[in-house]
Amino acid sequence: MHIVVATTRGGLDDFVSQHFGRAQTFTVVDVDESGNITDVRVVPNPAHSAPRAAGIQAAQFCIDNGANAVIAGTFGPNASQVLQTAGIKFISVPPMMTVEQAIKTFLHEEL
């Protein structure tokens, strides 16, 4: 499973960004069938500084990169619609949650 998490600097210890489309980076986490994290990559969000439609562009990036789920603090209505149409789960988390906490909580179906 490929999970994309909106972040500021990236990594498992970073906090989940509260703004999906304008997040500076995405932390891409691969999880195996047993729920173990197998790979973590930090990639720049190509839509971070887009003049408009950042949420749509960020959602398209997630689609293009094979995301099964996306985690952020909030999603705009356009980004939500694009992700939903693509069949990608999108999960909102409260402030001050780390990427690792968000992944574990999601995998235990507590979000």
Rank of each mutant, 00 (worst) to 15 (best):
T7Q: 04
H108D: 12
A53S: 13
D64V: 00
R9Q: 11
T8H: 10
D14P: 04
N65M: 05
F26W: 06
F61E: 01
K104T: 09
E33C: 02
K89S: 14
N78H: 13
P94E: 12
L111M: 13
Q24P: 00
D13H: 06
P95D: 11
V16E: 03
L83V: 05
N36D: 12
D64N: 14
I56M: 10
V4T: 13
S34E: 14
F15D: 11
P77W: 01
A53D: 15
V28I: 15
A54P: 03
L111K: 01
N36H: 11
Q18E: 14
T105H: 08
I3F: 13
G21W: 04
M1Y: 10
V99T: 13
D13L: 05
Q57M: 13
Q57W: 00
T8Y: 02
V31A: 09
Q24K: 15
A67M: 09
L111T: 14
G10K: 03
C62W: 06
G55N: 03
K89W: 03
E110V: 06
L107C: 08
Q60L: 12
V43D: 01
N36Q: 11
A58V: 07
R9T: 06
M97E: 08
Q18R: 13
L12W: 08
V70H: 04
I3G: 12
V82C: 06
A79F: 03
A67D: 10
